[in-house]
């Protein structure tokens, strides 16, 4: 009797801890998203002060990661969560690692935006980059939404978009090379733009990782090294078997 009370008590405390941590992860995600938007805006508008500011602010993302990480370690050590709760903790720790790396990529974009501000803008006024920036910003936003609601279906949908990002990335790369062939003086600028495009592509990868952790949280299945289609099929089969078992 007494031990049952105690375990309920512990689990209530654990739930409170979890809610607090989840809120902080979402705050961190919200800030990262804002940084990403501002970095792309700095580039497109040629606003070097904004680019520098975004890069300078990355320390806040880093600080949030360390704080949440410490909080998670503390929870694991003091609450000794059950296996399924532990799975959630692991997913959170991984999610903030990816958010922090998104922050690093954004910092790079900010620095490059500051450097490019003084140079002549490309003829297409960064149309492709704006498009790619929008795609990955939405991915980050929706990945966090799926994470917050433990929505594996949405997570799958978002993860699938990464392929589109990869295709766009390839296209912009080819296009930059064509521009450079036409005007070799633009090589410096084009190289900088390529790093931006690459950073955006990586942000898409990180958003996809976050989706994979959400699936792991919900279904307890590690799908990272599977294609999205195989992963979805396996999860469906898994769920069907579960239902039969009931």
């Amino acid at each position: 009797m007494e031990s049952a009370d105690l375990s309920q008590h512990t689990s209530r405390r654990f739930n409170e801890d979890m809610e607090r941590v989840t809120t902080r992860v979402l705050q961190m995600g919200g800030f990262v998203e804002q940084q990403l938007n501002r970095a792309v805006a700095a580039l497109v508008d040629g606003n070097s002060a904004l680019g520098e500011e975004v890069a300078r602010e990355d320390y806040r993302v880093n600080r949030m990661e360390v704080e949440i990480d410490e909080e998670c370690s503390r929870i694991i050590a003091t609450r000794q969560p059950t296996a399924s709760d532990l799975r959630v903790m692991v997913a959170i720790i991984k999610t903030i690692t990816d958010l922090e790396r998104i922050g690093d990529e954004v910092e790079k974009v900010g620095n490059i935006a500051a450097r490019l501000a003084t140079m002549e803008k490309p003829a297409d006024n960064y149309r492709e980059i704006r498009h790619l920036g929008r795609l990955v910003t939405e991915m980050v936003h929706d990945a966090l939404h799926a994470f917050a609601r433990l929505d594996a279906d949405e997570a799958f949908e978002v993860a699938r978009r990464d392929r589109k990002v990869d295709e766009e990335y390839e296209a912009v790369q080819r296009q930059s090379i064509t521009f450079m062939m036409e005007d070799p003086r633009s090589i410096r600028r084009a190289l900088e733009i390529m790093w931006v495009v690459r950073a955006l592509e990586r942000i898409g990868d990180h958003a996809k990782n976050i989706c994979e952790y959400t699936v792991y949280m919900v279904h307890g299945k590690d799908i990272r090294h599977l294609s999205i289609e195989d992963a979805e099929r396996q999860i469906r089969d898994f769920a069907a078997r579960d239902r039969k078992g009931d």
Binding site: D58, Y59, N62, R63, E65, V66, D69, E70
Partner: peptide, 8 residues
């Protein structure tokens, strides 16, 4: 945690 000590 020294991960960001150079960057913070």
């Amino acid at each position: 945690d020294v991960r960001h000590s150079g960057k913070s």
